[in-house]
Amino acid sequence: PQLPVLTPEALIARIMEAEPPDIYLMRDMSGPMTEATVMMSLTNLADKELVHMITWAKKIPGFVDLNLLDQVHLLECCWLEVLMMGLMWRSVDHPGKLIFSPDLSLSREEGSCVQGFVEIYDMLIAATSRVRELKLQREEYVCLKAMILLNSNMCLSSSDGGEELQSRSRLLRLLDAMTDALVWAIAKSGLSFRQQYTRLAHLLMLLSHIRHVSNKGMDHLHCMKMKNMVPLYDLLLEMLDAHIMHSS
């Protein structure tokens, strides 16, 4: 079946509607911050966000038309990047702080009680500063986040039967549609053509930094799990294990 053809404007409207709500940790953070309590809070929040992320992905036009295995692979590959992109967006107006949720922000000092976390913290702060410099617009942000999902894994279904090929070509068309939407969003700013394609390049280059921080974060979380620093359960555990399996 053909994908419904949406104009860039209509596509952006649909992915804006797909945005998850604010997610609260809803825990008492008044006690002392230790490695265990910080990790517990972060993983607890991530687990909640993951459930909303799946709902978000399903609302991206065309995503549920991909074959189910491809949907699974894409989400398994991109989940931490998507979480980090959201974190950067929430933190953009708070220089030097990371706003994990409306009720959980961490300073560098608080982050430093988790072994190995400061390195990732600093990378996230640096990437957030870049987002601030670029004055990322909400429409550009939602496009980039959808692109992270759709671009997360180029080697999808390994067998090349008819259905898999069809799903792959659908995915490429979705990525093209998302690129058109991003170009449209950039064009709204009234920049010259030259400035527009420079901005497009700057925005897309952000994605390679996010991939890098996400890989670092994934290693860190895996390490924390191995040391039994934090009990992982449910969806987060499943997503971490799947990612480690894909990357090994």
Partner: peptide, 13 residues
């Protein structure tokens, strides 16, 4: 990936 599959395949209410 049981939980992920379950969430992907449930119909939105």
């Amino acid at each position: 990936h049981t939980k992920l599959l379950q969430l992907l395949t449930t119909k939105p209410e």
